[in-house]
């Protein structure tokens, strides 16, 4: 049972690592990395749900074998694009923040604005 759901457990562990990083690290880039891991874990969740055991890649050919569900994979393609956009926007913001504050630690930044 546990082994059968191994792929899902892997996703959950990855998610938790990502979230933990986002919470525990005050560094803005590390937070983004954590968030990225969290997102990737979700992508894996989708991809593994589309997999049919013993199925072939969903490419048209003559033999009537079982094939994996292509839809989740396609969806995740979109999600990956969105993830890239988010990450790059986040990093662009981090560059601007660095220019403005000369630091990337969130607590320090908040402290500097505190007057």
């Amino acid at each position: 049972m546990t082994v059968g759901l191994f792929n899902y457990w892997a996703c959950v562990v990855l998610m938790l690592i990502g979230l933990y990083t986002a919470i525990a690290r005050p560094n803005l880039i590390k937070k983004l990395i954590g968030l990225g891991m969290f997102q990737v874990a979700v992508f894996l969740l989708y991809i593994s749900m589309g997999k049919v055991s013993g199925g072939t890649p969903p490419i048209l050919h003559t033999s009537g074998e079982a094939y994996s569900n292509p839809l989740p994979h396609v969806l995740i393609l979109t999600a990956i694009v969105v993830g890239i956009a988010t990450l790059s926007l986040g990093l662009a913001l981090v560059v601007r923040i660095w220019e403005a504050y000369q630091t990337l630690e969130e607590d320090e930044i908040v402290e500097r604005d505190h007057d």
């Binding site: 979230l19 919470i23 525990a24 005050p26 937070k31 969130e106 908040v110």
Partner: peptide, 13 residues
């Protein structure tokens, strides 16, 4: 006051 994003994320979870 404004909360740090770490606490925001924690609260969400």
């Amino acid at each position: 006051r404004a909360w740090l994003s770490q606490s925001n994320v924690l609260i969400a979870i």
